[in-house]
Design a protein around this nucleic acid. Structure first.
Lengths: 122, 122
DNA sequence: TTTATATGGTTTCGATAAGATACTAGGTGT
DNA sequence: ACACCTAGTATCTTATCGAAACCATATAAA
């Protein structure tokens, strides 16, 4: 087995990066660290996330072994999503991204204003 | 000023997340932590990254104050990209994502095989 | 009995973003 | 004159996203 090289487009690590370096995946995982959440609750909590993309994101996360799906025989059927032990090892680092965005937003906005004012960006 | 809430689609932190939770941004920042790199070297190093997307990614990172662009009066003109102090505070966490992908790839692939084998996923 | 609600999705289609390729512009070497 | 270097931009095609509608199942209300 070759050493993983994320800068190689054909390396499997690249496919994984494409999945986890995704806004919806980051937000979903960020919610699941606090305990299992049902489909529609995720959809309502994550503003702007469509059912289609949530479904797709969860399917991908489940396939990658990061999230566990459990359909409960209630009426109507409820589906509970929870984070797996593997997912938990990732959650810490995606949490860090969320936290970075929330704590450095002022600096970023200041930089954007400066960039837009100078505007010699053809 | 309101408390930042990344789960709100209109919160500025969400826009920032869209930028940094991006495969190309993660890979570019990951390279710049080791020192300034020129445009074409980034393009050649990051396999699969087109000139267009690199140009766009760098422009966004520069606007957000994460990357600094410096055109040097050489012949031909060379453009050097470097990470800013603000970018450096982010780099640690995106590095963690890169590292996670590279170190947990085996677990992910195992999970994918199991998922694909069971295949009762309509 | 028809209508409305809830659950967790899938399908369809138009808009948007990404990717491949060609091209620009200024200068050097042959 | 022509190829080649730099760092991009322009154009066109293809893949992905998002909004809305639809599906299946069951409950409760009108």
């Amino acid at each position: 087995m070759l050493a993983p090289n994320i800068y190689d487009a054909n390396c499997p690590t690249r496919q994984v990066l494409n999945r986890i370096a995704d806004k919806w995946a980051v937000l979903v995982l960020g919610l699941l660290v606090d305990g299992p959440v049902r489909f529609n609750r995720l959809r309502r909590t994550i503003d702007g996330l469509s059912q289609k993309m949530l479904s797709q994101t969860l399917k991908n996360l489940e396939r990658d072994g990061l999230v566990h799906r459990e359909a409960k025989a209630t009426v109507p059927v409820t589906v509970e999503y929870s984070i797996t032990p593997l997912g938990l090892t990732l959650a810490e680092t995606v949490e860090a991204i969320k936290i970075w965005a929330e704590s450095h937003i002022a600096d970023v906005q200041k930089a954007q204003k400066r960039y837009d004012k100078i505007s010699n960006h053809s």
